[in-house]
């Protein structure tokens, strides 16, 4: 590098650039949080309602069983099993379809093939996780995924 460009100048670019772009990032983050209420379906999450409580239980079931260790949700997670952000629509807008699938997984798997474990969830937990996935499908994800297969 040319002599005219000194270490002090490089240092100042680092500090100045970092501070500037971090503040810009914070501003965008702030603006995003102002825009989210119109996109993230937070009205469904009201803890005063049955649905809100079901979704909260559903998220807990989702996390406590590490579903994201095999599946993706809105494209994030693992890639071993299908995307679930749109599973509700893929199952013809049916939470019963989702519940039936989770419930019917064989305890010892399927010979030679990938299989989902049997989690022995209660009826309440099954309803919760299905409602949680329905909620996920209603988030405005800018038109993703490209098609129903996820």
């Amino acid at each position: 590098m040319a002599q005219a460009f000194t270490k002090e100048m490089a240092r100042n670019i680092f500090y100045g650039g970092t501070v500037f772009f971090f503040l810009l990032f914070l501003a965008l983050t702030f603006d995003t949080h102002l825009a989210l209420p119109d996109r993230d379906r937070r009205e469904l999450l009201d803890p005063e309602t049955d649905l809100g409580q079901q979704i909260a239980l559903g998220k807990k079931v989702w996390e406590d069983n590490n579903c994201v260790g095999c599946h993706s949700l809105l494209g994030e997670g693992a890639y071993f099993a299908p995307e679930l952000g749109n599973v509700y629509t893929r199952y013809n807008n049916s939470t019963d379809g989702i519940i039936g699938f989770i419930k019917s997984r064989p305890k010892d798997g399927i010979p030679g093939r990938r299989s989902m474990p049997q989690f022995n969830l209660s009826d309440e937990e099954l309803e919760g996780v299905a409602q949680f996935l329905k909620y996920a499908s209603q988030i405005d994800a800018a038109g993703w995924p490209p098609n129903i297969e996820g």
């Binding site: 650039g17 970092t18 965008l28 995003t32 989210l36 809105l74 494209g75 994030e76 994800a141 995924p145």
Partner: peptide, 24 residues
């Protein structure tokens, strides 16, 4: 200094490449 300056100048807002399809 130049390397890490470029890393943060691009990488902080670069976080946005994870915000395309999650509802943001």
């Amino acid at each position: 200094y130049v390397i890490i300056a470029m890393a943060l100048i691009t990488g902080l807002i670069g976080t946005g490449h994870h915000y395309y399809w999650i509802g943001a």
